[in-house]
Design a binder for these strands. Structure first.
Length: 583
RNA sequence: GGCCCCGUAGCUCAGCUGGAUAGAGCAGUAGCCUUCUAAGCUAUUGGUCGCAGGUUCGAAUCCUGCCGGGGUCGCCA
């Protein structure tokens, strides 16, 4: 159960009951929220209802609040209602409601927090989409983790999510890749090679060269490029995608759809169809573009070209679709790609890109608006750079020989849990410092550890209970029967309140496309648990396990179990493991 | 020059789509280990929310204009 959603419904009903003219006024009612008050002393729930509707009703907010208050005095879950400030309504709930929350967690387990707010809407999350020219480097890692956590979150919140990877396998860079692989092929056949600049120099192509020898023997040798380029390209692309998938697997990331750009090209392909369609709609014309102000490219050539009327859909300028050599621009393919998403039935398209593509957002938005007739929503999320540090010092990355720090390097050193959590413990559009030393540290300064430790501590409490009170039944069934009425101290209520807000957190994070909120929530919940645990040190009556009070112990264990379950659910959404014990 | 992102405590950052007296961690200061894991906790110091206007019952949050930092700017992907 989500008590905030529950009361939002009740407040809305109460408003309509008191002011029938509000009936059907969805836009006003939508602004009414029920949230936890900033100051817990104000109560358990707070609503702005009176402030929101006062003006349209032409009434004084406090009058409206008073009307609502009388309505809620009859509510069996409400202990007291109080009007505060300009017209806020603060509710203090009866203790039982928190006990109901705990009971519902015990019942729902992994589904506590799962919701239907997405209403089954089809969402396509496109992320990673790293060029298949080599292994993934750290720059890709953030987008990979972000997209993956977002996909999990949305799916948990009731959206119908597809995780998709767009393979940029059609551009000139993959020709360069193939040529680089061909060099390694010749090397594998005993030739001494030199790698010209502009080629991919990485060592990861050496095994590809050997594999080419195994597949083709020396039959590609002394052939013109036209003979070997296609087969080598096909082979090396497959090899690179395997490399990338291996990297992603290290972070437990698996896409459901790999969409090849190449399949859009060619006669009768989707790009052609899309451009024909756009032409029919009148969204394409032949024209000239102004050179960008303030910075005219060296080789600027004023020519007439095929343009998409992006500016008609909110973009700054119209965008070219065909290069001077007659081939399609990347954007032309991207329009076709996004059209394919729309045609496949997705109504929300999420693109996760690196911050260096930030100028691309308005173009995508324009394209999606055009190809969907405005019916599809698009959200382009940008991931900022990750600065790698070691003990506070920036990690030097030598670009020579393409030797960047790879995703595999990071994950091998700190593990998938820490990598994922740290990258999610920051808003995606804010730059992030990733300090190897901190991430491996087992102290409270390390948020990954701090949260995982809270979870392990929950298990530790259970282990202690079994050791100290072996005759006590702490099975899930026994916990369901616990006398929760014994949980009434302010610390216990605070914890129950916190886990009671979990469903609301999930829904809000999903709507905002912001998985980092979950990471912060978990950190806060962990802090509350640690604080409560520490109080038992000073005051033994506050311990979870009390040998002289088995009934209270069972009740407290039920609370610990609720916290544990929320930590498990939250870490699960972030793709971070929840160990029962830390080594 | 155009466009996008950012600017909140000494540092690193949250701030729940406009709510009440702006929060947390680190650092600083003062405490807590015969006690469920001190791998932790408590207290305390610290802010013209970059600046100036505007919108309204109410702005860190929305709008406009500046200042500062980053990114990007037809035929790269």
């Amino acid at each position: 159960m989500d008590i905030f959603a529950l009361f939002e419904g009740r407040v809305s009903d109460a408003l309509i009951a008191s002011f029938p003219e509000l009936e059907g006024n969805a836009d006003i009612l939508a602004r009414v929220v029920v949230e936890p008050p900033r100051d817990p002393a104000h109560g358990d729930l707070s609503t702005n209802a009176a402030l929101v509707v006062a003006k349209p009703l032409g009434k004084n907010p406090r009058e409206v609040a008073a009307a609502l208050a009388t309505h809620f005095e009859k509510d069996e879950d409400v202990a007291s209602v109080e009007i505060a400030g300009p017209g806020f309504l603060n509710f203090r709930l009866k203790l039982e409601i928190w006990h109901q929350v705990l009971a519902s967690i015990a019942r729902l387990k992994g589904d506590y927090g799962r919701s239907k707010v997405g209403q089954g809407e089809k969402v396509n999350v496109e992320y990673v989409s790293a060029n298949p020219t080599g292994p993934m480097h750290v720059g890709h890692t953030r987008g990979a983790v972000f997209g993956d956590a977002l996909a999990s979150l949305l799916s948990y919140a009731g959206y119908d999510v597809t995780k998709e990877y767009y393979i940029n396998d059609a551009g000139s860079q993959v020709d360069t890749l193939a040529r680089s692989a061909y060099l390694r092929y010749r090397e594998a056949l005993g030739e001494a090679i030199e790698i010209p600049s502009g080629f991919y120099p990485g060592d990861y192509l050496i095994p590809v060269g050997k594999a080419l020898v195994e597949e083709f023997g020396n039959s590609l040798l002394d052939q013109p490029e036209s003979a070997w380029l296609a087969p080598v390209k096909q082979h090396v692309l497959a090899a690179m995608m395997e490399l990338i998938k291996d990297d992603l697997r290290k972070l437990n990331i698996e896409h459901e759809v790999f969409f090849s750009e190449k399949t859009l090209h060619g006669a009768g392909g989707e790009i052609e169809k899309t451009l024909a369609w756009l032409r029919d709609e009148g969204f394409i014309y032949e024209g000239r573009l102004e050179p960008p102000k303030g910075k005219t490219p060296e080789d600027w050539e004023d020519r007439e070209q095929t343009l998409f009327r992006a500016s008609q859909f909110g973009d700054d300028v119209d965008r070219p679709l065909i290069k001077s050599d007659g081939s399609y621009t990347y954007f032309a393919a991207d329009i076709a790609y996004h059209r394919s998403k729309v045609l496949r039935g997705y109504t929300t398209l999420i693109d996760v890109l690196g911050a260096d593509h930030s100028g691309y957002a308005s173009r995508i938005a324009a394209a999606v608006k055009a190809v969907s007739g405005g019916t599809a929503k698009v959200d382009v999320r940008f991931c900022q750079l990750v600065k790698l540090l070691r003990n506070g010092e920036p990690v030097k990355m030598s670009k020579r020989s393409g030797d960047l720090v790879t995703l595999a390097d990071v994950v091998d050193e700190v593990g998938p849990d820490a990598t994922r959590f740290m990258l999610l413990f920051r808003r995606n559009d804010a730059p992030l410092d990733f300090d190897f030393a901190l991430v491996k540290e087992q102290t409270r300064d390390n948020p990954v550890f701090y949260v995982q430790y809270a979870h392990a501590r929950c298990w530790s409490v259970f282990r202690n209970a079994e050791k100290d009170m072996p005759e006590l039944d702490v099975s899930p069934e026994a916990l369901l029967e616990a006398d929760l009425g014994l949980l009434s101290s302010s610390d216990e209520i605070e914890l129950m309140r916190m886990i009671g807000s979990w469903p609301r957190q999930v829904a809000a994070a999903a709507r905002a496309h912001e998985p980092h909120r979950l990471a912060f929530y978990l950190h806060e919940l962990a802090a509350l648990l640690h604080a409560f645990w520490a109080k038992g040190k000073e005051n033994p009556s506050l311990r979870f396990v009390n040998q002289d009070d088995p009934t209270l112990t069972v009740a407290r264990l039920a609370l610990v179990d609720g916290v544990r379950q929320v930590l498990v659910n939250g870490l699960g959404l972030l793709g971070v493991s929840a160990p029962k014990e830390l080594s």
